[in-house]
Amino acid sequence: MTSLATQHPTDHVHNARSDARSRAALSSPFMPYRPAASSPFIPTDVDPAALTWAETVAPGGYTHRVLARGTRIRFEDPTGSACAHLLLFNAAAPGERLNTADTVKIPWQAYLGTDHPLLSGDGRVLATIAADTSGHHDAFCGTTTDAATLRKYGGSAAEGPTPSGRSRFLLAAAKHGLDARDLPPSVSLFQGVRIDEDGALRFVGSAGAGTQVDLIAEMPLLILVANVPHPLDPSPDYAVGPLRIHAWRGDPTGPDDERFTRTPELTRAYLNTIDYAQARGL
């Protein structure tokens, strides 16, 4: 076997530069696709020219974006073992952010699914779940802390094999000038939890490989994504799969959409949201 030094002639700047450039076309199972239209996994129902974000997030990895109002974001769990922990913020004023209590309380519904709003604490819809072929999600257990991860897996180093969701969020948040205080309870997609009559939390896991969830950004959105095992995942292994994301330009929910009038709370939430957006010229 030849040494790395032999494989990569980098004894000189020009060589090093050439060597670096020679690998530009390599691929990885976990990467962003830029331009987004270069994604090998473009959804068949999407115009590639409209894509604004395409990425496969590694197990234990994270990503983050600021997205225009109206953007449609598709999360896909290609292996049935992803767990997409999400935090959403108003990108223009990140003190407004996901409020998990309002997200289940206002719709009178504990379980996330199609047409469920992801609400801020300010009476507005940050994003709507516009489509969902999984139905296995969780708005109660948040993500994992370093302490819990250490207890469960024996380690929680951010650079190690078992990072916590919170450490992922902290890094993602830091890229936007936010810190630990900016991380409220999160929701997660693709690994379900149900609440039994006595309050017991029952982990129901995945709905299987290939399920998808579409969000519509109803506000200018800062989204943080951590792909780590669910806090109640009973496996002793850190066995989370890759997470696929595509986003494309679209329209926010408006009065002509069926969901706008689906419930009185939703209508008022969208009216609040549109009121805010119109005042800002969004």
Binding site: F140, A180, R181, P185, S186, G199, A200, P231, L232
Partner: peptide, 18 residues
């Protein structure tokens, strides 16, 4: 005060919503 009560950690640790 950056360390404060957390609903999800409390629920997940107890395995119960109440």
């Amino acid at each position: 005060t950056a360390e404060r009560y957390s609903v999800p950690d409390t629920l997940a640790a107890a395995g119960n919503a109440y």
